[in-house]
Write a protein that binds this DNA or RNA. Structure first.
Ligand SMILES: [Mn+2]
Ligand SMILES: [Mn+2]
Ligand SMILES: [Zn+2]
Ligand SMILES: [Zn+2]
Lengths: 136, 136
DNA sequence: GTTAGTTTGCAACTCAGTTGCATAAACTTT
DNA sequence: AAAGTTTATGCAACTGAGTTGCAAACTAAC
């Protein structure tokens, strides 16, 4: 678990047992997961602790959150270099068949021209459709 | 109220008293409003009736919903011609100062190149920042 | 070891969204 | 116009995500 610990400490997160477990689970995932999803991966667990763990991870930019419109916020690992700045943001995809939410990490969010006097701090872009898995 | 009735019937919605009131309120708004916002514009009202009214309006494409990440879905009138197809979609803007959600009706959502075998049905794009009102 | 700060677990609560069911109102048929 | 049928409304109740408060457990510093 040295690797896991390093990832945590490099983001200034004290490595505790639960945090290691949560980070390992997040690392295994191919898709973004919700708090409830995470909870179900533990036999015995406390919602609130997991909730606060995710919050801590997010605040320290180890993970980012995705609001995909399903009613439950999803979380996914940030890249090593990610500082969650606008230029680090990417498009997310929600599959209407398998109901999974993916990071399209290679697809940056296209820039748009806002009306005069509007300033931008953040963008959320979620595409809904059918993923490659469900399309084949 | 002839105009209001016409708008309703043109979308195949039976014009009832409440529906007329709700449509009138929605027409007055410069921004998108939530169910709770709507509720507060009535002295005496039933959440569920308003909820179902919004659902009916949305199903019949009189209004569209916006998930701006605040936890409460917002609603705004569709344009006359709107069929809520991908080509009718526009960018939405959430102001971090005044907390209002606007339709940027003139800004279409830029198209993006999805990975192979991904198909698109829908896009949600919400920009967060400061609106022109709050910036001046 | 004592103390101070941090993390965890449990209870409880808020708020948006939703469903079931009974009544009321609006149309249809005779 | 009365009876029957469909649709809309109102009220109660519930779900599920997110959140807060507080006390116990743990950790790190002195
Ligand atoms: Mn992502
Ligand atoms: Mn809009
Ligand atoms: Zn899929
Ligand atoms: Zn504003």
């Amino acid at each position: 678990m040295k690797d896991t610990d390093d990832k945590l400490t490099s983001r200034n997160i004290k490595p505790t047992a639960i945090r290691e477990l949560v980070l390992d689970i997040l690392t295994e995932q191919k898709m973004a997961i919700s708090l409830s999803d995470l909870e179900q991966k533990f036999h015995k667990s406390d919602r609130v602790t997991l909730y606060r763990t995710l919050k801590t991870f997010e605040k320290n930019k180890l993970i980012h959150s995705i609001d995909d419109g399903t009613g439950a916020v999803k979380y996914a690992l940030c890249k090593e270099s990610c500082q969650c700045h606008p230029e680090d943001l990417h498009v997310h995809f929600f599959c209407l068949k398998c109901q999974h939410t993916f990071c399209l990490s290679d697809i940056p969010i296209p820039s748009i021209n806002l009306p005069v006097n509007f300033s931008m701090e953040n963008i959320n872009m979620v595409v809904k459709g059918v993923c490659s898995n469900c399309n084949s």
